[in-house]
Design a protein around this nucleic acid. Sequence first.
DNA 1: TCCGTGCATGATTGCGCTAACATCATGCCG
DNA 2: CGGCATGATGTTAGCGCAATCATGCACGGA
Lengths: 353, 353
Amino acid sequence: MEVTRRKSPVSTPGPQEPRRSLTLRDVSEASGVSEMTVSRVLRNRGDVSASTRARVLEAAKHLGYVPNKIAGALASQRVNLVAVIIPSLSNLVFPEVLGGISEELDDTGLQPVVGVTNYSPEREETVLYEMLSWRPSGVIIAGLEHTPAARAMLQNAGIPIVEIMDVDGEAVDAVVGISHHRAGAEMARRIAAAGYRRIGFLGTKMPDDHRARKRLEGFEAGLAEAGIALADREFYSGGSALLKGREMTQAILTRSPDLDFLYYSNDMIGAGGLLYCLDKGIDVPGRLGLAGFNGVELLDGLPRRLATMDACRREIGQRAAAIIAGRSTTGLVGGARIELTPVLQPGDTIRPA
Amino acid sequence: MEVTRRKSPVSTPGPQEPRRSLTLRDVSEASGVSEMTVSRVLRNRGDVSASTRARVLEAAKHLGYVPNKIAGALASQRVNLVAVIIPSLSNLVFPEVLGGISEELDDTGLQPVVGVTNYSPEREETVLYEMLSWRPSGVIIAGLEHTPAARAMLQNAGIPIVEIMDVDGEAVDAVVGISHHRAGAEMARRIAAAGYRRIGFLGTKMPDDHRARKRLEGFEAGLAEAGIALADREFYSGGSALLKGREMTQAILTRSPDLDFLYYSNDMIGAGGLLYCLDKGIDVPGRLGLAGFNGVELLDGLPRRLATMDACRREIGQRAAAIIAGRSTTGLVGGARIELTPVLQPGDTIRPA
DNA sequence: TCCGTGCATGATTGCGCTAACATCATGCCG
DNA sequence: CGGCATGATGTTAGCGCAATCATGCACGGA
């Protein structure tokens, strides 16, 4: 690895040396009109004659002027940012939610800004504080569980707040998501109906993944309806989810060889489990059934389709963004509650009921 | 301690009725000191007596005051944001780079802000313009290829710029990455040395994925050294990468059944190809060798380890962030060029040389 | 001819905060 | 006991822009 140095940071390909960054004044002097007119041209607001407009645009372009949104935002009391606070980017799920948000926001003039909490409530609080200090037009935040301080900040912010992913709980303002409790219960019923009886759960250990927790609770409740109790469980944290899925599956099957179904808290470890079972020649879904959660695209490429439930990730993003966009234009207030319905996709790893 | 009440616009400071958002003045009135002192306390700057500090903090907390960074940034001409511009979030690679950046920035007071271009140069230009208008302390941007306007903006911005991922080309300022050309060539040499001769390439169609393009160019150059020409190629775009890997592998093997090696432009499609080959009972690596690129964690869970090259993703993020952090504190200027060296991991899908 | 009308542009003010300097006690030294 | 660091606070002046209102000017109908 080599390191070389250049002499100057700015060798201008454009016009002059921008020692101090350019302001409206520079453009106004270059084009011979007032700052106000330049401002109007650059924002396409108010009446400006075509000739003036052209002259100003030419000058701005020639100088390489980039507006200062900080000053603009302060003066206009308007910021076109939407804070999006999510636990992780490596989860596949959240980039998809983000995709939905971006798409929906694309032609509203609003722009998402992402903050990541790593599933830590304290970090969430910090990130929220940081983002609110930029006075965004709205907040989209994953989950309904927040520290008291975070909750207070959300309530006091005076902007639209949309909590996403999860509807099982008390929302600050609007909420868009699915019921993870119900999702777990539905899967449990399906499994019970298919005749499986010795059922194991494999999932994340993280105490702050409330949605996984709720799925498990719903799952156990669903099993209970059929008089079934969870036979065994196995938890993990960190590492490659696919590999963990393999290892955990091996571990739980070694410990409880009589299990006839494994419910995974997400598709990634479920996929690992599926690969493990195929490796070992285990009869799936005859001898052993499998199911995950999320409906990730990755599953399409596996040798067999893992049973799962679509978490409506993209749509959640879109709906949440639409709420922010709608409210920030209409100025209307009031928290919608949108519960989406995930669909169980039985795939090839649950035997027919 | 007694609480003195004074005539204040905010009679009920609790988490209710945030009519007009709070300012330093509100805190200053509530705590009986000047705005300046409040500002000092909240920024931990300058000398403030312990008692005053406590009083101010109490007042700020009680009111639920959140500083306005817009005003602060305008006044101080300092913004603690670092713009990070990447092509995609669904690629796995970039979240990892982001992880490296966040980690490195974590205790510098700087904060990354992410913009996504979807591999579109025009979108990159737009995103860059938007981000620069917030006057960040630095820019980390993927790739060396930009529109002329984007390049000009970067050069004129007067802040540290770090181009990442790729070092094959002309940098604006600093650059941290690997040589994809070299990476492709190295893999080609290894494949040739192992005795493979009928070699196919499978990759993305996107014309703006310059790094994939450079890997292919390097790969062909490496093969040429051994007198080998690429026997066939197959391109894709969109969809589930794992599934695409399967489909493409089937397609290319149907068309050119005599191929004895497949080089994939990324691990995801490579993994799909591997699964396909295992399904079909193809002898890997005897009859057919396989290799991908990136060294993604996912590979650890596959039935067999795909040959790949680690792209140093996390380290790239860290080094880039360190450059920004270092320069923004020291004020030093000058573009470093850091070339990392990816390591070929032969896994189980190339036969020994 | 006049004044109104509408368009194009300019002047003023302040958004909320911080840099820089000013002020005013203390206390401690010789 | 004088003088001057030193600490603790307050005062002033913008940062770059946009809201708002003021101004100038051409045109057209009465």
